[in-house]
Design a protein around this nucleic acid. Structure first.
Length: 894
RNA sequence: GGGCCUGUAGCUCAGUUGGUAGAGCGCCGCGCUUACACCGCGGGUGUCGUCGGUUCGAGUCCGGCCGGGCCCACCA
């Protein structure tokens, strides 16, 4: 049908008839950046405005965008875009992490491939400059991909954890902690990765069950012999004791004596220690203080020596036949030698037990005794816990707080030194006569005299800091700390820290500790919004080995960035993992197309935002209905954002656009638009209003397509800086009319009737396009008197015309529709339909009757509930009577 | 060894304070009714893991069991 009235100027639109994401998205992003929309203002001009800050969890400089980034970035973008539209001075700060081990490993491999050299062919300085070279040429691929996704970050404030400013922050806090006695150096058992050749912190070790062996070995001879069990036979070379439980009568006589350690001939004492579990194995345990954290503890308590038997590559250094063997070669060799001597009492293989692996490279971690730097976490962790306990920081969803406390309240001291070159070097110098000096960022190195001559004997600690040490400063180091900057004043503390629950310990807790410490107790963020992990369409973790890893760029190519973003937001239930598959992204693309076509329809019909919205007296019920629904959705979306309910807000918009706006309002609008005159004018204005608002609401999640449509519709500059709509009073907001329950009820009746008519038609096998003569009875007894034309249009019903012979009828509420099917009614189909409806009505009647027959129910249930059941019973009884009558009036069939 | 989460339609998930079970995708039928076939209209899909308890009433609260998943942990 033609929907352009003759009396209207012919509307035009520049929108192509087909929505092609690439054409829409390509041109927009750079314009937003160039116009400075994402650039935050911390000058006096912005001083009075509320600010809103999110710092991006800095991705590794080596990384490229994966779905997890796309997911979190979409949500952060949506949050900041909404706040920007609400008039906040918004800062979303981007940057990258230098990622010590990951980057160094990658560049080492790169240099090996391109130059055939290893790290050791370079001086430390040269190597580091090679890493910077690599960064300039190959690093930060993710930044371009973030643009592609449409992320409204402030590129003028991009930071890198190895920048000069952030390095100053690192050195400043290190010295402060050192001076406060919260950083110390000590010889401890730490987790050591023999491949990365560096110490690791506890959380950089993944434990999982591996197949191993449990070997029982007899130490000593005769009455003084004692059997110990071990999964690591090779470490016996470093044993310095055997331990038993103090109350264990079996070994009481041996405590204080010594036994001969096989293969070495050394005599080692038998000690009693509470740590030993007398019920495990033989109740006696070999003690290797240099290679096991428990044994180290026993060694400390009993003053035992620690004998290291391996080097940094985990190759045996203990003199003798095993020297030079890798630990995994040494193990069977040692067992074989013991067997040779008849020392093996029992062997259990395979023996499943937990083994620590390097997070980065999966190498089995070797507990190793060495001097390392530690953060004394006690007071820091306490403060970090209290900030959440006191409610100064909210963890969302609340169920995740347990994880946080579990960690923060049981934290071990943090090993922060790494034996790497790429990273922030520990600012401690050792002097010729044993001095130790910690330098602040402005202190001069002690190996130079003021006149520049070298002072011999000084050397700087060779280690660098754990990458997470600098990440922990991110919320304030990026804003200029330790200097008192305008950015820091305007944007700290940040508002939301949005990240995955898998990173609570690595990052969130540590930012809390350092933020509270450095910023005089002011928390680094007000809310921690935790997301789940992105998984494949069957809920499995994505991994290279499973082959189910998806490159988000592929989906952006195929379906558009908006579709990917929409899908991710739609799956974002707080703290819950998100399954995602290509079909779902395709479905989101379909939604964007739908939106596109709805806007095209509106524009082709002259939808406008010019002038005042016509008053309620001029609006039709249909107009009032859609505006009422619009207000409801706006409220829902607005509230959802406050609670990080992205899935709910996105879902609500999806249904509003598709099921209400497109399926009903646009269809119903065709009549007044065709009619022309004032009716058409009102409709065009309402249509423009609805689209305008819905595009604003969708913009944070699907910025591209909404921008293209909105600028076309309104001629406005950009949706990025347009005002956010709200149906509730919330300061800077565009207000919508209140709910209109009368209009909503009327439309609900209309929809019920139309749907019933369509169902009848479908059951009767009528082609959807076939116009059927019909008589509608009882409209004036309902609120639908004014909707006859609407009903006929939507249900494809013709007027009665001449010679109308009703051959079938259907009922919806008080309304009866008689149809002239030219006698060609499909009786069986109709019988089937009525039978089904009758069964449903009888079941309904039965259920209601039972309930109402229950005296307790009548007595104890609220009146409202009882009333509802009574109504239900009445309706069911009427339906049963009507359907029984209808069925019996059907002609019998052979 | 502790602690947490979870079991709802074929698949992936929503289900606010207990008051007739929902969505997307998939599936079935009919349609090119000029915004949209990346579409329209209609349809069905479930003993809400299981057993018991509280309640007038339980997917929703409590307990046991079974099945998944996760986190933490120095059991050799």
């Amino acid at each position: 049908m033609t929907t352009t009235p003759a009396d209207a100027p012919r509307p035009t639109t520049n929108l192509p008839s087909q929505y092609v994401p690439a054409q829409v998205e390509g041109p927009l992003y750079q314009g937003w950046v160039d116009r400075g929309y994402f650039t935050a203002d911390s000058s006096d001009k912005a001083a009075g405005r509320p600010s809103y800050t999110i710092v991006i969890p800095p991705p590794n400089v080596t990384g490229s965008l994966h779905l997890g980034h796309a997911f979190q970035h979409t949500l952060m973008d949506a949050l900041t875009r909404r706040r920007r539209m609400q008039g906040y001075e918004t800062l979303w700060l981007p940057g990258m992490d230098h990622a010590g081990i990951a980057t160094q490993t990658l560049v080492e491999r790169y240099l090996a491939e391109t130059e055939g050299k290893s790290k050791h062919d370079y001086s430390r300085e040269d190597f580091i400059s090679r890493v910077w070279d690599w960064k300039h040429h190959h690093g930060g691929r993710i930044l371009g991909q973030m643009r592609r996704l449409g992320e409204g970050v402030d590129w003028t404030r991009e930071r890198f954890t190895m920048d000069e400013g952030l390095s100053r922050a690192v050195q400043t806090i290190f010295k402060r902690l050192y001076d406060d006695g919260l950083i110390y150096r000590a010889e401890r058992i730490i987790n050591w990765c023999p491949r990365c050749r560096t110490a690791l912190s506890d959380i950089e070790v993944d434990h999982h069950d591996d197949d191993g062996e449990l070997v029982s070995i007899r130490y000593g001879d005769g009455s003084s012999s004692i059997v110990v069990a071990t999964t690591r036979a090779e470490t016996m070379l470093g044993d310095t004791a055997v331990a038993v439980h103090p109350d264990d009568d079996r070994y009481r006589h041996l405590v204080g004596s010594t036994v001969v350690l096989p293969l070495t001939g050394r005599r080692i004492p038998v000690v009693a220690d509470e740590h030993v579990d007398p019920t495990f194995g033989t109740g006696a345990v070999k003690v290797t203080p240099a290679h096991d954290p428990n044994d180290f503890g026993i060694g400390q308590r009993h003053g035992l020596p620690s004998i290291s038997i391996m080097d940094e590559r985990a190759v045996v250094t203990a003199p003798g036949p095993f020297q030079g063997l890798d630990r995994f070669e040494a193990r069977p060799a040692v067992v074989a030698a013991l067997r040779e001597e008849g020392r093996i009492v029992a062997e259990k293989r395979p023996y499943l037990h937990a083994v620590g692996h390097c997070m980065r490279c999966d190498t089995v971690v070797e507990p190793r005794l060495s001097e390392q730097w530690f953060v004394k976490v006690g007071p820091l962790a306490k403060a970090a816990g209290d900030a959440v306990r006191d409610g100064r920081v909210t963890i969302h969803p609340a169920s995740m707080a347990g994880r946080y406390f579990e960690w923060v309240d049981n934290m071990h001291d943090w090993c922060i030194s790494r034996q790497l070159w790429w990273g922030h070097r520990i600012p401690v110098w050792y002097g010729p006569t044993g001095e130790t000096v910690c330098l602040g960022p402005d202190d001069k190195a002690p190996d130079r005299a003021p006149d520049g001559t070298e002072i011999p004997g000084w050397r700087q600690d060779p280690d660098v800091l754990d990458t997470w040490f600098s990440s922990a400063l991110w919320p304030f180091s990026t804003l200029g700390w330790p200097d008192d900057t305008a950015d820091l004043r305007q944007f700290y503390p940040t508002d939301v820290l949005l990240t995955g629950y898998d990173i609570i310990f690595f990052w969130v807790a540590r930012m809390m500790m350092f933020g509270l410490y450095a910023m005089d107790g002011v928390e680094p963020f007000r809310t921690v919004a935790l997301t789940g992990l992105v998984r494949d369409q069957h809920g499995r973790k994505m991994s290279k080995s499973k082959g189910n890893v998806v490159d988000p760029l592929d989906w952006m190519d195929a379906y558009g960035s908006d579709a990917l973003r929409f899908t991710l937001a739609r799956g974002a239930n707080p703290g819950t993992d998100v399954p995602i598959g290509a079909e779902w992204v395709a479905s989101s693309r379909n939604f964007c197309t739908k939106l596109w076509n709805a806007a095209r329809f509106a524009l082709l019909n002259g939808a406008t935002v010019e002038g005042e919205l016509p008053g309620r007296d001029e609006q039709s019920v249909v107009d009032r209905w859609i505006l009422s629904r619009l207000a409801a959705v706006t409220a829902q979306v607005d509230a959802g954002y406050e609670d990080f309910q992205f899935a709910k807000t996105t879902e609500a918009l999806y249904h509003f656009v598709w099921d209400e706006l497109c399926d009903w309002y646009l269809e119903l609008a065709k009549l007044p638009l065709t009619a022309g005159g004032r009716q058409a004018e009102v409709t065009r204005r309402v249509l423009g209003e609805v689209l305008d608002v819905v595009l604003r609401l969708l913009h944070p999640v699907t910025p591209f397509v909404t921008e293209a449509l909105w600028t076309e519709l309104t001629g406005g500059e950009s949706l990025v800086v347009a005002q956010w709509p709200a149906s509730v009073v919330s300061g800077v907001a565009r207000l919508l009319p209140p709910a209109d329950p009368a209009a909503e009820a009327e439309l609900a009746d209309l929809q019920r009737l139309v749907t019933e008519a369509r169902r009848f038609r479908a059951d009767q096998g009528l082609r959807p396009g076939k116009r059927v003569p019909a008589r509608i009875i009882g409209l004036d007894r309902t609120g639908l008197a004014a909707h006859e034309a609407d009903i006929r249009f939507l249900a494809t019903l013709d007027g009665e015309g001449d010679g109308f012979v009703p051959s079938a009828k259907l009922t919806s509420g008080a309304i009866v529709v008689e149809l002239d099917l030219s006698g060609a009614i499909d009786v069986e189909a109709e019988r089937k339909r009525l039978t089904k409806d009758l069964a449903a009505a009888r079941k309904e009647r039965e259920q209601a009757t039972v309930k109402l027959g229950n005296a307790d129910f009548i007595a104890k249930a609220p009146d409202a509930v009882v009333g509802k059941i009574r109504t239900r019973l009445a309706t069911a009884e009427a339906d049963v009577a009507r359907l029984e009558a209808a069925l019996s009036s059907l002609p019998a069939t052979p």
